[in-house]
Design a protein around this nucleic acid. Structure first.
Lengths: 212, 212
DNA sequence: AGCTAATAAATGACTGGTCAGTTATTTGAG
DNA sequence: CTCAAATAACTGACCAGTCATTTATTAGCT
């Protein structure tokens, strides 16, 4: 009867993950400084003291939250970087739709907001986020675009800026959701935005040798 | 000898503005919760007590900071909304270059970051920012694009999404500057980004009846 | 199985420091 | 001299982090 009556809680293995998840929720809502450890504890169904069995300080929890959000996405970036040899249009369509899916089904948006908001207070966290995620992803896209340019597929122009142009609407849509939708503003449909955006932008980026 | 030796400070008229400016700097750096009133006071060259001669609470100062950042830009939005009757391409080029200039010469970026970070804690501020600035600007652009579509100048597609696509790279570039440039990341040249972006995107948006 | 240490997990009352906001006092201008 | 402007020391609340105590779990023994 292991699944019968759990009676009282007493575990260990999954506590840290539970705490991190609770912390993510509270941090994303209040920001780092305004988040109270008691809130995190309550959200995790645990006492404040218990948190200190698994984490040294509040900053530690924050680091864990950001780290946890980064980890599973590094693989994604790597896969992206494994330069798809097909035409750029196909690559971009698949990458953006994949990323849009991930972003809308994970709390990545909330973490992004936190990183932006706390970058000045936690430079190392901003650096990790940048070096391990943002820079990698941007670099991979830049490389892919650059290669396509060499192939004569893409018009002249700064490839890094092209990459920025491509991902920006997604980021803004996510921040919009985090910032203005709770206020009652009209949301954006992430997938629809990216579909229209890639179509439009590709049309402007590609040379004559391109069609879907 | 009004400009000679100010000896000791004793004014009244310009204190509030000085405090708001100092507060902007500190808030943009630390975020609302982590900003100390003593820091703001020191930055303004004033004692903490003096701040309370002009503002009721810390939140009041925050409201003033955001409000001050919004105020001068409402005119800009209005002018933009006064639908330029020429071809859309011209309108977008002039608007984006103008906005890019304003954004890079004012602390609007820092305020944007604050609004995003504190929206959950200060919904009314998010609402003001949205209703008076973001929504107006987005609405004006959407209307202009919509009109251009009716004229047969722009391909089918959601005009609100087109507007989002247009402004997103600017916003992301600004947040990039606030977030990752202090870490040592390569900055983006806002003006250059917007030039390339408008060129590319217009090429994808416009129907056959368009050229610069 | 029952009973009892021994141990691990968890608690919540407590502490020390920090900081928003107050106020008694001082300073400068007219 | 008078009054407004400004100060700096002060207060009270709040909260991160600690620790003595309680509660569940496991192991050992019969």
């Amino acid at each position: 009867m292991d699944t019968g009556a759990p009676k009282f809680r007493r575990r260990k293995a999954d506590r840290p993950a539970e705490i991190v998840q609770a912390a993510l929720k509270v941090f994303a809502e209040k920001g780092f400084a305004a988040a109270k450890l008691d809130d995190i504890a309550r959200e995790a169904g645990v006492s404040k003291g218990a948190i200190y069995l698994y984490f040294e300080t509040k900053e530690d929890i924050f680091r864990a939250v950001v780290g946890q959000a980064i980890a599973p996405n590094i693989g994604m970036v790597k896969a992206m970087a494994a330069a798809h040899p097909g035409p750029l249009a196909d690559l971009l369509r698949s990458v953006t739709s994949h990323v849009a899916g991930v972003v809308s089904q994970t709390p990545l948006g909330g973490v992004l907001k936190m990183v932006v908001g706390e970058a000045r207070n936690f430079p190392e966290i901003a650096r990790v986020w940048h070096d391990e995620l943002v820079s990698q992803a941007l670099g991979a896209m830049t490389a892919a675009i650059s290669a396509a340019q060499a192939r004569g597929e893409v018009k002249p122009g700064d490839p890094r800026v092209y990459a920025l142009q491509l991902i920006s609407p997604m980021l803004v849509a996510v921040l919009w959701k985090e910032t203005f939708v709770p206020i009652g503003a009209e949301p954006f449909d992430l997938a629809a935005v990216m579909r229209q955006h890639v179509d439009t932008l590709l049309c402007g980026m590609l040379t004559e040798g391109a069609r879907t």
